[in-house]
């Protein structure tokens, strides 16, 4: 299709020359080139998203319009608020730890001689490359109640066994740990690239002014990396907040509902319990929170951009 557009464009381009027409033609061609993208977004993303809103206003058997009945129903349930809280704790904690670990490890990698960096970077990025569902399986086996390899070490060190996925607190910890494990390398790579783009002279200048390591990080590194930190946090928040694979494979939401997040609960309610409208309602709650995060961070970036 691209070729057809190209050749017809070429044919027409050779004909007329009026500036106005060229502009008009240029925008037509541009529109045609973006058309597949537009169609895809409208048919497979925008329409189903709107349809989800419609579904969320139907009754369970999808025969009657109930307006905000499903929302009303959810708001009255303790489980729902528990899941709101968990989704937030889960996303916020995981993103913070990913960012911190990524930042710290990026500094270590940046500290060592350049020729060794490639090797370390290669090893440290592995968790990001393995498909999440598969690496989570190995965590599941590491956490197994009867065969936990961690507990084996603990017992040999004289420490008590931990029921990694069995107690609400530990299960939340485990889910966050796996999420950090998978996501931290992404931050590491981003920050490493950003560190390299900070001009060495700035550090030298700071050193001459007698800045401590902390001042150098606070006044040189962080401001220089501000954009990239914002961008990575935005991305990671989105991915973490909508996460399904890890919780699904690791705990399936248990024990009780202690590790359910919006995505897994929507799946449980909508598909497994056959209440499609309620499932759609639950999943809709992911949108506003993400939208807030996005506008907040995007605005921040453009503000910073205009200051510079």
């Amino acid at each position: 299709m691209a070729d057809i557009v190209a050749s017809s464009a070429a044919a027409r381009a050779s004909g007329r020359t009026s500036l106005h027409k060229v502009m008009q033609r240029k925008s037509t061609i541009a529109f045609l080139m973006a058309l597949p993208l537009i169609l895809m977004i409208f048919i497979l993303v925008a329409y189903p998203a709107g349809y989800a809103i419609w579904l969320s206003m139907l009754n369970k058997s999808m025969t009657k319009f109930v307006g905000f009945g499903n929302f009303d129903f959810l708001f009255k349930r303790a489980t729902f608020w528990e899941i709101v809280l968990q989704s937030c704790i889960f996303a916020i904690t995981a993103v913070i730890f990913k960012a911190i670990i990524g930042f710290v490890v990026a500094h270590f990698v940046n500290n060592i001689p350049t020729k060794g960096q490639r090797k370390w970077r290669g090893m440290l990025l592995v968790p990001w490359v393995i498909p999440a569902a598969m690496s989570t399986l190995s965590w599941l086996w590491l956490f197994d109640p009867s065969y936990s390899a961690f507990n084996w070490i603990f017992v040999h060190l004289g420490l008590p066994k931990i029921s990694w996925l069995g107690e609400a607190g530990w299960a939340r910890f485990s889910v966050i740990l796996v999420n950090v494990w998978i996501g931290a390398p992404f931050f590491l790579i981003m920050y490493l690239a950003a560190l390299k783009s900070v001009p060495e002279q700035l550090y030298e200048a700071a050193s001459i002014d007698g800045a401590t390591w902390w001042q150098r990080i606070w006044f040189v590194t962080l401001p220089m990396m501000r954009n990239i930190i914002a961008i990575t946090i935005l991305f990671s928040t989105i991915v973490t907040f909508a996460n399904f694979d890890i919780v699904r494979v690791l705990t399936a939401g248990g024990p009780l509902t202690a590790t359910h997040v919006f995505a897994t609960w929507a799946f449980k309610v909508g598909i497994e319990s056959g209440d499609i409208p309620l499932g759609a309602t639950v999943s809709l709650f992911m949108v506003p929170i993400l939208a807030v995060a996005a506008t907040f961070i995007l605005r921040d970036i453009s503000k910073r951009g205009s200051e510079v």
Partner: peptide
């Protein structure tokens, strides 16, 4: 488009 996760879309897609 990024803000609309697959976990929101799969139910309506299924009906579609």
């Amino acid at each position: 488009t990024y803000l609309i996760p697959d976990t929101l879309l799969f139910i309506p897609l299924f009906k579609m």
